[in-house]
Design a protein around this nucleic acid. Structure first.
Length: 271
DNA sequence: GCTGTATGCAGAT
DNA sequence: TCTGCCTACAGCG
């Protein structure tokens, strides 16, 4: 479930289970054998998330494991050890009582400081991180003719926002997803950034994406409760042809930059 | 068993 | 703008 909030949550979970502890490291699937062997028996020092990227450091080497889950990747942590390997486990970490199995990542590699710095340098500010500089994103957005919906998901502009948060934050601020970045006012940007930070930090705690304000929750609107398969309550994401929770208009969808975009044409009118 | 789908991104065209 | 790729699972026959 890899938008940025999930990666931050994962980093926290890994730290709780493994930080400061010696780990057994292996690559049952066979595609991270050399890296995994190098770390076997090492002490894990910390896991850190930047946008959708996860970095894991160890005491005995300056190199870090860089993981990007991509669309399908999962990193499952269970409170058991001695488990049989099920499926294609790229990397398995075990301490006395806990097993973490990584499957299907786009990236899983041991990187030196220079390579890590390279990745960091190409990422925009991450709304979840305390060290984020939202102005860097504004500089790009305010000068761009690309649709705001495209810019929000561009990891060079903002790190960690994915298809759900972009659709939801644009809905919450009644912004036309096709409006060029240069059409956004500074105030709108400040509001969008603050909202993304709040929504994503909450998501990192709960592990769900919840974007529906209390007054629009199904119960408050006299509708039956509803839970989508990503685990939270949302306004427009994957609700194509369903009624907008606010105005009742049919939610629209369209492919934009290879991803499905969802919006309400009435709440987010063309500008 | 097969097909379609998924919260992503890089590299080719 | 399009294709390929990493994997699991739901829905279908």
């Amino acid at each position: 479930m890899p938008e940025g909030h999930a990666i931050h949550r994962l980093a926290g979970d890994l730290n709780r289970s493994f930080a400061g502890r010696q780990v057994q490291s292996s690559s049952p699937q066979g595609r991270f054998v050399a890296g995994a062997a190098l770390l076997d028996g090492a002490t894990l020092s910390a896991a850190e998330a930047i946008g959708k990227h996860l970095f894991i450091s160890f005491d005995h080497t300056p190199e870090r494991v860089h993981i990007h889950l991509g669309l399908y990747g999962r990193f499952a942590i269970v409170r058991e050890s001695g488990l049989p390997v099920k499926g294609a486990v790229r990397w398995r970490l075990v301490n006395g009582e806990t097993t973490a199995d990584l499957r299907g990542p786009t990236a899983c590699a041991l990187l030196d400081d220079i390579a890590v710095a390279h990745i960091r340098a190409r990422l925009g500010p991450d709304p979840i991180r305390a060290d984020a500089e939202p102005d860097r994103a504004w500089q790009r957005i305010s000068r761009s003719r690309s649709p705001i919906a495209t810019l929000l998901m561009d990891q060079r502009v903002l790190a960690g926002v994915g298809n759900i948060y972009r659709a939801e934050v644009l809905f919450r601020h009644e912004i036309d997803p096709f409006m060029p970045g240069s059409g956004l006012s500074r105030q709108e940007w400040n509001d969008v950034w603050a909202d993304l930070a709040a929504l994503m930090k909450a998501g990192a705690v709960t592990g769900r994406i919840d974007t529906v304000r209390a007054e629009h929750e199904p119960e408050a609107m006299g509708r039956p409760p509803r839970h989508d398969n990503h685990g939270g309550e949302v306004y427009v994401y994957r609700r194509a042809s369903m009624d907008c929770l606010v105005c009742g208009t049919s939610v629209r969808t369209q492919s934009l930059a290879n991803r499905r975009l969802f919006w309400c044409p009435r709440c987010q009118p063309r500008r």
